[in-house]
């Protein structure tokens, strides 16, 4: 057979959309989502460079500076032990972010594995796994986290575990539904007809096409996990004092709410902005990944 000279060239012109590129093109037209993204990126930067930004050591006690109002030396004032609130908020961002990301990752990994197996293989395996999922999700999310933390005792590692283990059920259900939807596609049949093994079909064909809603839910969920961490810390079951955490700062400040309101206002604002950022970003991602929305029609 004659060989075309073009046929010897390798495939180079990788010019168009991957999932993430497509997502970005759509996302950047949505102003609220970009604001959310800005908040999230800002939080990440603050957490990364906490030691550079923070003017004081967040655990340094200075009793002579106890309960100072916000001023030029202490931008957000000081708490009852004279610690700089601004520095504690900045270091608290680090704790919140690490917990949000790690706990959510644990949930995603467990949920995706269980959901993918359940949806792909179906039958008794599906029934068994979904009943286990039901049992886990029958417990109220926060109550289960409190129970686990009470049992294990407060520490960073235990928070990862507690919040990770209570959150995976929604991912499992989400992924299972998507997998069941995608596995009926003709291109899965095509993959089977070329002799692809189950592992390849799941990893290369099903998951890339099933993962979009998981990305959206993850973005929304990190905000929820950060809120839950704040709640646990508020109850004294989260980050172990004196390490700064927005939740425990709220708890320490609540006794002074009327005469030193800056103690609760600033952690509250920090939690609010973080959760808002993740929710706006998640909402934007949901719109960006909705295939029914035309790319050109998004304003």
């Amino acid at each position: 057979m004659s060989t075309n000279s073009d046929a010897d060239k390798t495939l180079e012109l990788y010019e168009t959309s991957s999932l993430f590129l497509e997502m970005w093109v759509r996302l950047k037209r949505n102003r609220r989502a970009i604001f959310g993204l800005f908040l999230v990126v800002f939080l990440i930067l603050v957490a990364l460079f906490a030691n550079v930004i923070a003017p004081y050591d967040p655990v340094q006690i200075a009793l002579k500076d106890s309960l100072k109002e916000p001023n030029l030396a202490h931008l957000m004032g000081t708490d009852v032990l004279g610690r700089d609130i601004f520095s504690r908020i900045i270091y608290g961002a680090r704790a919140s972010l690490i917990i949000g990301v790690v706990a959510t990752s644990i949930s995603v990994v467990i949920g995706v594995i269980i959901g993918a197996f359940s949806g792909y293989y179906g039958g008794w395996l599906d029934s068994l796994m979904m009943r286990i999922t039901d049992i886990f999700s029958a417990f109220p999310f926060f109550l289960l986290a409190i129970a686990i933390m009470t049992f294990l005792g407060p520490s960073l590692l235990n928070i990862f575990f507690a919040l990770g283990i209570v959150g995976w059920t929604n991912y499992a259900r989400l992924v299972r539904g998507q997998v069941i939807l995608v596995k009926e596609s003709k291109y899965i049949e095509a993959a089977r007809s070329i002799g692809a093994k189950d592992r390849r079909i799941i990893l290369r064909h099903i998951l890339p096409n099933a993962i979009a809603p998981v990305i959206v839910y993850t973005a929304l969920n990190i905000g929820g996990v950060i809120l839950a961490e704040a709640g646990l810390s508020f109850l004294g079951l989260g980050v172990r004092p004196p390490a700064p955490s927005w939740g425990s700062m709220l708890a320490e400040g609540k006794d002074f709410i009327f005469n030193a309101s800056w103690l609760v206002v600033w952690p509250g604002v920090a939690i609010f902005l973080t959760v808002l950022g993740y929710n706006l970003l998640g909402d934007g991602l949901r719109n960006a990944l909705d295939p029914r929305l035309n790319l050109r029609r998004i304003k």
Partner: peptide, 27 residues
Amino acid sequence: QMIFQDSYASLNPRMRVGDIIAEPILI
């Protein structure tokens, strides 16, 4: 092998055409 009726549905939308054709060779 099989050639499917709906050419759009039978090609994985998240894979490049080169990878789609290379996949059986890889397998």
